[in-house]
Design a binder for these strands. Sequence first.
DNA 1: TCGCATATCT
DNA 2: TAGATATGCG
Length: 510
Amino acid sequence: MMKVTSFQTRQSMGNKEICILVVHDDPIYRNIVAKMLQYCSHYEVLKQTIEDALSTIREKKDRLNLFVTDIHRSNTNGFEILQYIEKEFKLDIMSMSPYENRKLVPIGLTSNGNLYFLKSLSVNDFKSLWQYAYAKERGKTTSDQDSSLLDENMVQASLGNTSLFREVARGDLKLKRRESQETTEQNDATSDDSPNEKRQRVTWTDWMHHKFVEAIKELGPERAFPKKILELMNVPGLTRESVASHLQKYRLGMRRAEEAMQSTASVFGSKLTTQLEQKCFSSSHFAQNFNSSQGHHLYLNQLPHSISCQPGSIYSCLFHPEASTSTSNLGHEQLLTGTYPYGHSVSPFDATARNTENLYGFGTAQSNSQTGLGRLAQVDSGCVPGTQVNLNCETGAIFPGICNGRSSNAVSAYVGYRLACNGKSIETGQMVVSCNDVSAGVSGSESLVQTPLALGNDIPQQQPSQPPDLSGGRDLEDLGAEGEVHRLLDATGSTSPQFFWNIDEFLVPF
DNA sequence: TCGCATATCT
DNA sequence: TAGATATGCG
């Protein structure tokens, strides 16, 4: 696959340079966007108000490759402008919205082959924009094949958190692929066009890996050979060698996973889980909470970091409500695990449903799946190795003390956590969880607000002490499961990041 | 053509 | 620098 760098671009394009026009009424925003584009692409970037832009477009029509604007414009209707420019000048348009309004996506994408960003552009988006312009330009002059792959690279690189855009863009890509495939069917995409040239490095995007996994599923593990996978994947330009290489890595990951699962199962599955469960279930508060039809449960949506996801790895998270105000009965330390399948984060609850499908089964009792306690789950086979996955741990009944608090005051707790991968600590930290009185019978009144880190004043004064330093990656086995629990129980105080969470958004009734 | 070891790249 | 990807060989 063609990997675009500015050097290559300049070479391949000869004297022709990319020209991008940024149009925005706000001069500050205009300057920022233009500067970013210039910084990332080194190509000519013009910045103008819409009034000037129209004449510029007329003037430089042949040189312009990309038109960047904002559909939320104060004075003018952004969509009308898009339509006008597209019709008149047949330009590629990149539109964006500062608001995450999904309803606007289809409108933003009505233009032919355009991009739409749900949110304002990020640095990564900028880095990709000029590649898009380049790919488009190149598509005009050369075969569609490379540019279609480039398009996807760009899409991948520019995604950020805009998952909806990902879907839409991919749909668009698929269409393009189909079209280009029809026209280039005769050309064998896997053959080298120039024998002595080094093969371009393939970037295995989420999308490609997904197809790869789908192909393996279809063929079955025994018959999943590179050639067959390649055929099923049907990705122009992809070679059998690349697939073979990817398959090798994939199998290696699976093998490691199996081993890890076995060793981790023995540690977590028996000793630690049992011990913790006994503690939790012996608590009357916990039982009350658990039996409540309202099910007051706090969910920590996203731990304050993401992890590098490996297929088959088992991630676990041990929580410890460290301290609280007004509310007694904290101190349940519980083991919680999450499952992180392809492209998503799912809760332990989801994992139950998915377990039979594409996750490796992992022995958990029914009670576990309901509470989220003691669950161990595995990254499913479709997980893209090395991708950053947001940990999305639901703590479920982790904080029964808080949830069943009798106090009319807001309550909060410091929660220490230790993340482990395959039994090995990968991070420790803590966060603050707080909510209003949610004593029995009151539901939905929880009000946790995610607070920017900078607002230090909003962080309750009561400071826990230092959490244990487990960052050295010691094995659970080294410490012994019991020892590990005690270390966490000792966790106190820190200046590390603290978070509030809006649990209303994440409350899921049983 | 496959799978593995290892080189190369990023 | 490690992890991702390419390459060479039986």
